[in-house]
């Protein structure tokens, strides 16, 4: 990015800033160690903060020397990413907003600008302007890199939590010898339906279960996509030699299913989990004997 031609044999502003950052890295690191971004993370030891500050200053110097002050993809910033991802991610976990972190990174600039001005005391006003502009651009890029890091850390957190939720939300329960069930609670989307299907079918193999019950009592709505997933699960279970029963279809959902024109004809359904279990037990040849007739038997 050759924006300005260097006058005579004078260094380009980028190179000058690079040299300056490298030369003054100790002072810069000392000042940054007191800045909020480094201070709050390295509460244990100030030496660590200084160390981190020095590493960042060196990386910035390398980026400037390469003439890539405004390129966040510059190799030198990889070091910054590594160094700062820890820092920024812990700030983000501690509840700092993006705006706060952005302000904190911005706060790293004034002390460096001050040092640069002091360094250029003898230079022409134009030269000072050139160099401070280059430094400002460089610090702006740094801010971009940090925010990128923070946001991708946030995304990772969301991905991880989504995964955990999927696992937590699909417990397969062994109800009886050869009978497993998944009580589904909450909205079913495509990704979750997929996980439900796979975990249920895996447990059919593990438990050698001839019957698998999908209980949807806790599912608020069933649209055609969810119904399709239920039917796929039933069909897959059948191919494996197991029978899949869908239980807990509430009247409102039954209405929707009819309304949407979904044909659940091939799916074995029961009103409640208890009814489904009773059916599976009966199919296995177990007799359920009860002294008092249960209300379910009147249906």
């Amino acid at each position: 990015m050759p924006e300005r031609e260097a006058a005579g044999n004078q260094q380009t502003p980028e190179h000058a800033v690079g040299d300056f950052l490298l030369r003054r890295r100790e002072q810069i690191a000392q000042r940054w160690a007191d800045a909020a971004l480094f201070r709050t993370v390295f509460t244990v030891s100030r030496d660590e903060a200084v160390e981190a500050g020095r590493a960042v200053a060196e990386a910035l110097a390398a980026a400037a020397a390469a003439g890539r002050v405004e390129d966040p993809e510059a190799n030198a910033f990889a070091v910054v990413r590594e160094q700062l991802s820890r820092t920024a991610a812990s700030r983000s976990r501690a509840g700092s907003t993006i705006a706060q972190i952005s302000a904190e990174v911005d706060a790293l600039r004034p002390p460096v600008t001050d040092l640069l001005r002091a360094d250029l005391a003898d230079a022409s006003a134009e030269r000072v302007l050139e160099c401070t502009t280059a430094l400002t651009v460089l610090m702006g890029t740094l801010r971009l890199v940090v925010l990128e890091t923070v946001m991708s850390a946030g995304q990772e957190l969301i991905d991880r939590q989504r995964l955990q939720l999927l696992e937590v939300a699909t417990p397969v329960i062994k109800l009886w010898e050869g009978i497993v069930a998944v009580p589904l609670i909450g909205t079913l989307d495509s990704a979750r339906s997929q996980v439900v299907m796979e975990t249920l079918l895996d447990s059919v193999v593990e438990q050698h279960a001839r019957f698998a019950i999908l209980d949807i009592t806790g599912v608020p709505t069933v649209d055609s996509l969810v119904a399709q997933h239920l039917m796929k699960t039933v069909a897959a279970a059948r191919l494996m030699g197991a029978e899949c029963i869908v239980s807990g279809i509430r009247p409102a959902i039954a209405q929707t299913i009819v309304h949407l024109g979904i044909d659940l004809g091939s799916v074995l359904t029961r009103a409640s989990l208890a009814d489904a279990l009773a059916y599976a037990l009966q199919q296995q040849g177990a007799d359920i004997v009860s002294a008092v007739p249960s209300p379910a038997s009147h249906r």
């Binding site: 299907m197 796979e198 079918l201 895996d202 059919v204 193999v205 050698h208 279960a209 001839r210 796929k232 069909a235 897959a236 279970a237 059948r238 191919l239 494996m240 030699g241 197991a242």
Partner: peptide, 30 residues
């Protein structure tokens, strides 16, 4: 047909092949 694996069953269903006339079992013993 005995012992079809879950991944195979899921794929067949996705493929659109539910093989309705075929009888199945979890294992050879079954």
């Amino acid at each position: 047909v005995a012992g079809m694996r879950p991944a195979v069953a899921i794929t067949l269903v996705e493929l659109g092949l539910t093989l309705p006339g075929l009888r199945t079992a979890l294992s050879t013993e079954d």
